[in-house]
Write a protein that binds this DNA or RNA. Structure first.
Lengths: 107, 107
DNA sequence: ACGAGTTATAACATAAGTGTTATAGTTTGC
DNA sequence: GCAAACTATAACACTTATGTTATAACTCGT
């Protein structure tokens, strides 16, 4: 009965920008709820977390509401206290470049 | 002979802000070189990567030089093409909050 | 030494995120 | 139903990142 997903897929076909906007929205919300869950799991109130990170409560609320993406330093402050980690990993088996450089290429 | 690290540690003691600034700098560089390495590993030039991500070459250069942190959407665009992943993980065994909420607390 | 393909810098307008204060709405316990 | 603590919104000045163009500087191969 997947009507919701179907609707979305239709929109994506109709409007290429839709997909982009959707992805952004999902991500934004993703980070937001992830932060909120993490905070609650630790048993902190927004105000407490704010104190511990040197931020103010409304800023925490703003981030958890998904109003915008956290900037890197902000994310670090939060994860420092909340005990989360942000990892940037290179996906080993990604498609090979269209125009692979010869072995001697760089350095 | 750790003189460099020693010097840094001294500075940290003298000036609390130093630690913060250092951490930021290290991170900034960290992301920067990570991106650069990833790109080179894929065999792309800055210009190619720029095309693929819809960005311009100078912006790639700026990021790889560590001039500033990439914003989230930017990072996503890059990792999308470069095949890297950014993961936000909750550190399971983090210190328990100073004031743990009772079981009934939330939800 | 030249030229092609790179990477780096500079400058500037625009957009996005932060820091802040104030205040409104929501729980929850008593 | 009141009070206290928590969460959400709004507004505004400030900072940081982006998008863009132009241009310089650095390889390399020939």
């Amino acid at each position: 009965m997947k009507t919701h997903r179907q609707y979305i897929n239709e929109q994506i076909k109709k409007d290429p920008k839709f997909a982009e906007a959707l992805a952004k929205a999902e991500q934004e919300v993703g980070i937001a709820v992830e932060l909120a869950k993490l905070r609650e799991r630790r048993g902190f109130s927004q105000t407490e977390l704010a104190k511990l990170t040197g931020m103010k409560q409304p800023q925490i609320a703003r981030l958890e509401s998904g109003a915008h993406f956290p900037a890197f330093p902000t994310l670090q402050k939060l994860l420092g206290v909340l005990g989360g980690k942000l990892e940037l990993t290179a996906d080993a088996c990604h498609l090979v470049p269209t125009r692979p450089k010869v072995a001697s290429a760089r350095r």
